[in-house]
């Protein structure tokens, strides 16, 4: 009966994942490998194609202008693109929040602890969720409508060119583990339920929830990847890399705030990054 409960939990989290995350790994890999029929992404590889693609970027998500009624969009391709990324990130935070709420027991935790878990977990989750969208040559953006090349991102001015390169390095390695969407759903829940986040009031119930999800993940990986040795351990090791990447990412954003005088940081992302590490 215990194993049956763990299987049911895995199914439940997979269903929630499919419900809240619009671009699954299965869809992204189909697009990246050209097996998605008519769904061929627009490729951005230089400034000219970026200009053409900007229309698509802003159709796929709420645009910068909608967030800043009354203020003009800033100059510079980098900043404009950065604002699009922020809008998508803020929307993704909402998706992750809905997913977190679907983890059994999560909404019964102290509300302040729910906030803390999201504050510290959400950027790790967002970075992890970029992996299925990436390959060594570039990344899907805008819900899979656009493929932006890694070389183009590297050609942007500093520090914008430094923002995604570590995520590519991580993703290429992480993708070799070949997790599917059902594995990812459990792994995301494990990350969210980290009992060692600073400032948590009531650690015990969080650790208990995480323990159950960990058991479910371990069992699920054994069944789903019978030939992949030590996969559970390898997956958990990635949590250390994710934490480091978040620290580096937040540092880059702080640097941007100092160097880009006109920079606007989305209020939700500001809230998350303030006093994070």
């Amino acid at each position: 009966p215990e194993a049956a409960d763990l299987r049911a939990l895995a199914r439940h989290l997979y269903e929630a994942y499919l419900k809240y995350f619009p671009l699954t790994k299965a869809k992204a890999r189909a697009i990246l490998s050209g097996k998605s029929g008519d769904n061929v992404p627009f490729v951005i590889h230089d400034i000219k194609s970026l200009m053409e693609g900007e229309q698509l970027i802003n159709n796929g998500q709420t645009s910068f202008q909608e967030h800043n009624i009354g203020s003009d969009p800033p100059d510079g391709v980098e900043l404009r693109f950065f604002y699009s990324c922020q809008s998508r990130s803020a929307e993704a935070v909402r998706e992750v929040t809905e997913f977190a709420k679907s983890i059994p027991g999560f909404v019964n935790l102290d509300l302040n602890d729910q906030v803390t878990l999201l504050k510290y977990g959400v950027i790790e989750v967002l970075i992890l969720m970029m992996s299925p969208l990436m390959n060594k040559d570039g990344t899907l953006i805008s819900y899979g409508q656009i493929f932006m090349t890694r070389e183009f991102l590297k050609s942007l001015r500093k520090p914008f060119c430094q923002m995604l390169e570590p995520k590519f390095d991580f993703s290429v390695k992480f993708n070799t583990l070949e997790l599917d969407d059902s594995d990812m759903a459990l792994f995301l829940a494990v990350i969210i339920l980290s009992g060692d986040r600073p400032g948590l009031l009531n650690v015990k119930p969080i650790e208990q929830l995480q323990e159950t999800v960990l058991h479910s993940l371990e069992l699920h990986l054994k069944i789903n990847h019978p030939d992949s040795l030590q996969l559970f351990a390898k997956v958990l090791q990635k949590m250390t890399d994710l934490r480091q990447m978040v620290t580096d990412h937040v540092q880059l954003i702080q640097l941007l705030k100092k160097t880009e005088v006109d920079m606007f940081l989305h209020p939700l992302l500001q809230e998350i990054m303030k006093d994070l590490y």
Partner: peptide, 20 residues
Amino acid sequence: KEKHKILHRLLQNSTSPVEL
């Protein structure tokens, strides 16, 4: 609580992308 009011709002009710 004031410091994380959008997160609180997201946790307590479903907020649409426009409200974000």
